[in-house]
Amino acid sequence: MTAAAPDQVALAAAEALAHEIADAGARIGLPFVAVAADISSAVPPVGADGRPLAETLFRWVDPSLRYWEDHGFALRAAFIHASRACSEPFHFSGAGFGTWRPSRALDAVNAEGPVETYGVGAAIVCPAYLPGGVIGAVVWATADPEFDVESAFDRHAGELHLLALRFVATYGEAMAGEGEAPPRLTRREIQCLKWAAAGKTDAEISAIVDISLPTVRFHVTNAARKLRVGGRSQAIQRAATLGYIGGSSGNAASGPMRTRPPSE
């Protein structure tokens, strides 16, 4: 299947935002920038000319580190690792990772031990979580370990986070081709998928929700059809990325466990 051609208007808008990202870093004393439009992908963000922005616009602390050409870099980089744990902006210094409030997720990352800094003395990292489960990230860094990153974070994290979100969303739209509205699931379809995500069998869901076994299977199958996936497991995964069922089995029951009428 041939990939859709980039939307050149959206790509130009993303490149303009990339310039704003670089300018913001230079202004606040974090001149080195690394950007991932999708941390699950080894393909780096490119400009309108098709060249990686890491080559044409952004600079890194170690100019010899061509991280965008290393397909395993995202799995080793501590900043990307922490972005999987924390959706808010956070900062990095010799003391480790931190954010505006106590964060058990970042504490757990810090507890894993020293990280490879690739020459970074301090940094502000802004993850960008998008619909469909995509996570992007922008890192603004300096080689100076004495840089007062907490003060810079307090003053600029909101501005930087908005830039990161705008860039990742705009770039993602540029590369996605035609957009489409998410499918609409019924309350009963969502309820059945939530209990399925909690590990319940169709028979158990039937007893919990008080509808017949064939009706449970009908709702799960219908949800999978709407989500354009094949089968129960894929329907659960896709519904979770769209925010229909959340990421925790603890909220499986939305509303009363037994609801009528069964024909819903």
Score class of each variant (00 low, 15 high):
250 G>Q: 13
172 G>Y: 06
194 K>T: 08
263 S>T: 15
48 A>M: 03
98 G>A: 15
150 E>D: 15
72 G>F: 06
125 V>P: 01
104 R>G: 13
116 E>F: 02
102 P>A: 14
83 S>H: 08
146 E>F: 07
231 G>A: 10
225 R>P: 00
208 I>T: 12
199 G>N: 11
119 G>Q: 04
139 V>T: 13
94 G>R: 13
33 V>C: 05
193 L>G: 10
86 C>I: 04
39 I>D: 00
73 F>C: 03
92 F>Q: 04
223 A>Y: 04
152 A>T: 14
133 G>V: 07
230 G>N: 14
111 A>R: 12
243 G>Y: 09
137 A>F: 04
143 A>R: 12
249 S>K: 10
51 R>K: 13
181 A>V: 12
84 R>P: 01
93 S>N: 15
202 D>G: 13
63 P>Q: 09
126 C>N: 00
131 P>N: 08
69 E>H: 11
208 I>Q: 09
27 R>E: 15
132 G>P: 06
168 V>S: 04
20 E>L: 12
214 P>M: 06
155 R>L: 13
101 R>C: 11
83 S>Q: 02
30 L>R: 02
222 N>H: 14
202 D>F: 05
171 Y>M: 02
38 D>A: 11
258 R>L: 06
106 L>F: 10
207 A>E: 13
260 R>W: 10
36 A>N: 12
142 T>N: 05
117 T>M: 04
236 I>K: 07
218 F>I: 04
186 T>G: 14
34 A>S: 15
109 V>N: 09
222 N>A: 15
259 T>S: 12
143 A>P: 03
86 C>N: 09
3 A>T: 13
165 L>P: 00
249 S>D: 11
210 D>I: 00
70 D>K: 11
31 P>G: 06
44 P>C: 09
82 A>Q: 07
98 G>I: 00
111 A>K: 06
162 L>Y: 03
6 P>H: 08
3 A>P: 05
248 S>V: 07
159 E>D: 12
33 V>P: 01
111 A>T: 02
11 L>P: 08
87 S>I: 00
136 G>C: 11
194 K>S: 13
64 S>E: 15
205 I>R: 05
111 A>P: 03
196 A>W: 00
38 D>C: 09
189 E>V: 05
146 E>D: 15
180 E>D: 05
140 W>F: 13
174 A>S: 14
51 R>Q: 14
92 F>T: 02
120 V>R: 03
131 P>K: 07
119 G>R: 04
248 S>D: 14
137 A>W: 00
18 A>V: 01
171 Y>A: 01
